[in-house]
């Protein structure tokens, strides 16, 4: 078991290393076109270049700031709306078809409207990210709430518990793991929303960097941007997992 725990990340790293080596070898041998596909060494050089110019950290900082704000606001909104829906069955029934509709709607299609509403600025990016993460979070948390153990609700009612006692002493604590699990989905969706927003309106951020790279046909910048994005997404996901573990163990 312990061996497996060590072995799996080693295998993962090996797969990545083999992939990068094959990519680089094929690039050096001119079997693949580096103008279109770039190469690991060119990406590395571009990253160093961007880092030394001071631009990369600024882009990372902008994207992270937008992600954190959208993630926090989206999670907070989803939590509050789920409580409202749980507390008001009629409201939940009215809202349910809209939630299903909005969930299946590709949020990028709302981009032009969002830009008109919120302007071509950070607000649009945050709004786009919130729209991307909030619906699925509401659905996940609300469904957790309504699936709270009926027997325990019955027990609370026998003890003449008020609606708010049932909510705060049973429904919310029973669903902590559901809420924390929704954060895992939420963080990935927030990053998607932020990058979509940056592709549409931004002048800063990793999304902008990728867009800029493609506009000037510099695929090294595009690939470097994607690489940074993968790293950011991985670190954020791991942080949420850590938070998850901490809350669940408590």
């Amino acid at each position: 078991m312990k061996n497996k725990k060590i072995l799996i990340p080693i295998i993962d790293l090996l797969i990545v290393a083999i992939f990068l080596i094959i990519w680089e070898v094929l690039s050096q041998a001119k079997i693949i076109n580096t103008f279109i596909f770039s190469s690991p060494i060119r990406i590395y050089k571009t990253l160093i270049d961007l880092l030394l110019n001071g631009n990369l950290l600024m882009h990372i900082f902008v994207t992270l700031k937008e992600v954190i704000i959208s993630f926090a606001l989206g999670t907070f909104l989803a939590f509050i709306i789920s409580i409202l829906l749980y507390s008001n069955k009629l409201l939940a029934k009215i809202i349910d078809p809209f939630l299903t509709m909005l969930n299946s709607l590709p949020k990028v299609a709302l981009g032009p409207i969002i830009i008109i509403w919120a302007g071509a600025n950070t607000n649009s990016i945050i709004l786009m990210a919130i729209l991307t993460n909030v619906i699925i979070s509401i659905i996940t948390i609300y469904h957790g709430f309504i699936n709270t153990d009926k027997l325990k609700i019955k027990l609370f009612k026998v003890f003449k518990a008020s609606k708010s006692q049932i909510l705060y002493k049973l429904v919310i604590p029973s669903n902590i793991s559901t809420i924390v699990n929704s954060l895992k989905i939420n963080i990935s969706l927030t990053l998607i929303g932020v990058i979509m927003g940056e592709l549409l309106v931004s002048k800063k951020g990793i999304g902008y960097l990728i867009l800029y790279g493609s506009q000037v046909f510099n695929l090294d910048i595009v690939m470097a941007g994607l690489f940074v994005l993968i790293i950011i997404s991985f670190i954020l996901y791991k942080l949420v997992l850590l938070l998850n573990k901490k809350i669940v163990s408590n």
Partner: peptide, 10 residues
């Protein structure tokens, strides 16, 4: 008070 088939402990 009510006691059920399962303990219903939190």
């Amino acid at each position: 008070s009510y006691m059920f088939q399962t303990d219903a402990l939190l």
